[in-house]
Simulated scan of single mutants.
Amino acid sequence: MTSPRSSARGRPPAASRELLQESAFELFIENGYTGTTVDQIATRAGVSRNTFFNYFDAKGEVFWVELDAATERLKTALADQPSPHAPATEAIRTAMLAAVAPFESHHVPFILTQYDLIGSAAEVQASAMSRFATQARLLSGYAQQHGVDSAVARAHAYSLIACVVAAAQEWAQSGPQRGRLEPYVHRAIDTVLVASPSSSV
């Protein structure tokens, strides 16, 4: 998990998504999600409110730095699959594992361990769903390009995203000995891919 620092002293002057995210997480722990404002996050990070909005569209967006990076890795990995004649199943598995590969035991996203600080904030749920929908479009689009029926491709894509979410939750709850996320995801997505006819995905 990204570990919030207890003091703003010594921060570098240059803003970044990670610095703003860290500042937000510190404040969420101190004040709760609903008790924290964008102005407070910007002040803690030592930047202006406008600078915050250069990086994020809303307060709830700070949770998804890691997920956005994973989506970019997924997009790149799908584009880099070597052969259009390889089974889509194998290409999708490879790309999804590449997307989660950087997540080590000490790098658990804040939202997986501190969700009780957020409550049922609609904006957070909406921003999560929009990102999962983007990932599902990438997966279903790839499958359709390889001859899979659009309805089947879409259904399997959302099933795979659900498997990753479940795997991430299990991983986050497994404690310091959890290891890397990738094996959890591998096991979870195979419950969908192995059960699917090779001609469908």
Results as ranks from 00 to 15, higher is better:
residue 115 Y to V: 12
residue 10 G to L: 10
residue 76 T to P: 02
residue 174 S to V: 05
residue 99 A to C: 07
residue 61 E to P: 01
residue 14 A to H: 09
residue 61 E to K: 06
residue 21 Q to D: 04
residue 43 T to Q: 14
residue 163 C to L: 01
residue 16 S to C: 04
residue 169 Q to E: 11
residue 191 T to Y: 07
residue 55 Y to N: 03
residue 156 H to T: 15
residue 53 F to R: 01
residue 117 L to C: 01
residue 192 V to Y: 09
residue 42 A to N: 09
residue 24 A to K: 13
residue 165 V to C: 10
residue 35 G to H: 02
residue 34 T to L: 09
residue 45 A to P: 12
residue 28 F to V: 02
residue 186 H to C: 06
residue 155 A to E: 09
residue 80 D to A: 15
residue 74 L to Q: 12
residue 6 S to V: 07
residue 150 S to Y: 01
residue 180 R to H: 09
residue 97 L to I: 01
residue 59 K to V: 02
residue 69 A to P: 01
residue 42 A to G: 11
residue 196 S to E: 12
residue 31 N to A: 06
residue 175 G to Q: 08
residue 58 A to R: 15
residue 84 P to I: 13
residue 73 R to I: 06
residue 44 R to P: 12
residue 124 V to C: 00
residue 133 A to L: 07
residue 185 V to P: 02
residue 99 A to L: 10
residue 26 E to M: 03
residue 13 P to G: 09
residue 190 D to W: 06
residue 130 S to I: 08
residue 72 E to D: 15
residue 1 M to V: 11
residue 106 H to A: 02
residue 187 R to Y: 01
residue 166 A to R: 14
residue 23 S to V: 11
residue 63 F to A: 04
residue 62 V to P: 06
residue 78 L to I: 08
residue 33 Y to K: 00
residue 22 E to P: 00
residue 81 Q to S: 13
residue 43 T to G: 04
residue 71 T to K: 06
residue 189 I to M: 05
residue 178 R to F: 04
residue 185 V to D: 07
residue 39 D to A: 15
residue 60 G to R: 03
residue 199 S to L: 08
residue 174 S to Q: 12
residue 11 R to F: 11
residue 119 G to W: 08
residue 84 P to C: 03
residue 142 Y to L: 06
residue 121 A to L: 02
residue 140 S to R: 03
residue 131 R to Q: 10
residue 196 S to T: 15
residue 125 Q to C: 02
residue 115 Y to L: 11
residue 148 V to R: 13
residue 40 Q to I: 06
residue 88 A to Q: 04
residue 17 R to D: 07
residue 9 R to A: 15
